[in-house]
Amino acid sequence: MKVYRLRIAVQAISFIILIYGGLFYIDMGNRMPTFSCAYVDDRGGGCFLIGFQHMLSRPFGEFLGDAGIRLLKAMGIFALWSIVLNKAWCGWICPFGFLQDMLSKIRSFFDVDLSRFGWITRTRYKSVKYIFLVLLILIPLGIANSFFGLEKIPRDWSVPFCQICPARVILPVFNGDFSQIHIDFSSNTTMVLTTIVMVLVALFFTTAFVKRRFFCSYCPMLALLSLFDKIGLLSLKKNGQRCTRCGNCSRACPMEIREIEEEKVLTNLVTQDCTLCLRCVEVCPEDKALETRFCGIPIFTASQQGFLKRQGLDEESHTNKNGA
């Protein structure tokens, strides 16, 4: 089976499990490193970020006791999930990523060219997800505590990221729940935040249509997951000696990562923005130049033969029978 087909299948199955799993009594816990939104009623598992923000909004003193242990436990579960599958959570499981991939498919079906970031923009844009990450940690802390004697942040700001997360509005729709599509006029804060989310939803559809995985480039979950880049059991390795730097990998990369092509020395290529979709390995025509490993065991390796097969050439009659 071709890997991109397998990936779509896995993404579709994960989408069904994460959005409708509740109907089949599936519950995978609320600490998943993926956008299985907690606002979806029939979800099969919950996004880590919402619980994380809730747990953070406590006075500092409480972290020394029960709340601290609960926070550590939640982070431990999150870390375990992340270490096992690494960024494959983004490339293979995330329902929000799946939606973006589907929008890209629709775009290429209608023959619309994809747009790319300039190199400088791409590099600058990397930091945006960290801004989101820092804010989603600091604001909840600021609700329960006062920093430097300043006033506490009002309660309306609780779970700030979820309030502006377009997945909260879009994913429940698949569950038949349109109630998230509204602007909340109950206070100034909620009005502003819900307006922002509506703008982001509109932007999500337009940007994901012209550009592959636009949302992912500022997703704070990706920033959190990238803590485990180097220790994840699933890894992406490169053999620089075999690489001809033909650029196929970086051109096909939905996240437009250039390191995959340029790097000649480093072997671990799970970079900050990598979603481990393995598209680069698929389009690499050099034997063993790129390799995916799980616990050090190669599971998917770049090869000439595989490359041609995936390019639509059926080469059974041409294969080298002697292995010479």
């Binding site: 290429s108 060219d113 994809l114 033909c246 196929n248 051109r251 096909a252 389009v283 025509p285």
Partner: peptide, 22 residues
């Protein structure tokens, strides 16, 4: 003939890009 064009999305612009890169 060593290096190969990798068709990714199969659009005309994508293929021209791939050819230029190759």
């Amino acid at each position: 003939l060593h290096d190969k064009v990798a068709v990714d999305e199969g659009l005309l612009s994508d293929m021209l890009h791939a050819i230029a890169d190759r």
